[in-house]
């Protein structure tokens, strides 16, 4: 198990390095960083001065390793727009996005696992069809549109929930639903198909042959095996949710990383963009790693080689 975890961790590290390279190149090849730094209306001399001062005239490889070295220590330079250190800015915005992501995933799981189980218990019943409809509609509907719909219904018409800002936990309900709903269909379908497969399996028949009660057959023997792939999917979905938070945070004016990314992109604030993209990718990589380890732990065939 330890060996397995280590192997995964090394792999994750390699992926992280690749991502950092892509992240660096994307910015350096798409914009001229010296021009961006000099700001609008700067003269050619100023730009050249900045280029030499910051070493942007050196080979990209050298710049990359320098940037990577600083980034590893948490130094991403200063924001061009906010004029404060990027690291502080990111740290300040991170909790909001983490809360949003976690509650969105929580909502998605709480909705989709029970529905998936019920759908699997009564395949082709009305409830199965209903969940299928929810899944299809959920995947087809753009998340911003669903967010606006929620805003209009619960915020404007019913006036039940706040629709802007992130001061209390109430502010997070609608964004979490808007974001989480997007992840629910995939988890639901996977739970359903996993349960259907497991319920047909020989060991479920054995469990029933022992006279075990339905709850025990269902939860102890079936669900445990059916949710293993769901764990991996949930991690991937959380990654998507973090990406999706750019849209949702902007709509609900939540001051998180997504909102920061949007601000940074619209002001050509490349150090911030770089940091946010790198951070979200790293979170995604760590999540996938944790999911792998959780999966291994759930499955004795991997846990005990």
């Amino acid at each position: 198990m330890l060996q397995y975890a280590l192997k995964r961790a090394v792999l994750a590290l390699l992926v992280a390095l690749t991502v950092s390279l892509v992240c660096f190149l994307l910015v350096n090849l798409s914009t001229d960083v010296a021009t961006a730094m000099a700001g609008e209306g700067a003269t050619a001399e100023t730009i050249d001065a900045i280029r030499t001062q910051y070493g942007f005239d050196r080979p990209l490889a050298v710049q990359y390793f320098e940037w990577l070295g600083r980034a590893t220590l948490g130094n991403f330079g200063d924001s061009l727009y906010f004029r404060t250190p990027v690291a502080a800015l990111v740290l300040q915005r991170m909790p909001t996005t983490m809360i949003l992501g976690a509650s969105a995933l929580g909502f998605a799981l709480a909705l989709s696992i029970p529905l998936g189980v019920i759908a699997a218990l009564k395949p082709n019943s009305w409830i199965d069809r209903l969940t299928l409809t929810i899944a299809v509609v959920g995947q087809a509907m753009p998340s911003f549109w669903f967010a606006l719909l929620l805003m209009y219904l619960f915020g404007v018409t019913l006036q039940l929930l706040p629709i802007s800002g992130g001061d209390t936990w109430l502010h997070f309900i609608l964004p979490a639903i808007a974001l989480g709903y997007y992840a629910a269909p995939a988890i639901m379908r996977l739970t359903r198909s996993g349960m259907l497969e497991v319920l047909e399996s020989d060991y479920i028949r054995t469990a029933r042959a022992k006279g075990l009660r339905n709850t025990s057959v269902l939860f102890k023997h079936a669900l445990r095996n059916a949710v293993a792939p769901v764990v991996a999917l949930a991690a991937v979905q959380l990654g998507f949710l973090l990406g999706g938070s750019v849209v949702i945070e902007t709509i609900f004016a939540l001051n998180g990383l997504g909102y920061l990314a949007w601000e940074a992109i619209s002001h050509n604030d490349f150090p911030v963009v770089q940091a946010v993209v790198l951070l979200i990718s790293l979170v995604y990589i760590v999540l996938t790693l944790l999911a792998d380890i959780a999966n291994a732990w759930l499955d004795p065939r991997i846990r005990i080689g």
């Binding site: 399996s201 020989d202 060991y203 028949r205 054995t206 469990a207 042959a209 022992k210 006279g211 075990l212 023997h221 445990r224 095996n225 759930l298 499955d299 004795p300 065939r301």
Partner: peptide, 18 residues
Amino acid sequence: GNRIAMIFQEPMTSLNPS
């Protein structure tokens, strides 16, 4: 499992792997 018990054709898959 109490008064009537059964064993199956497929020993490889009849036990829960977890």
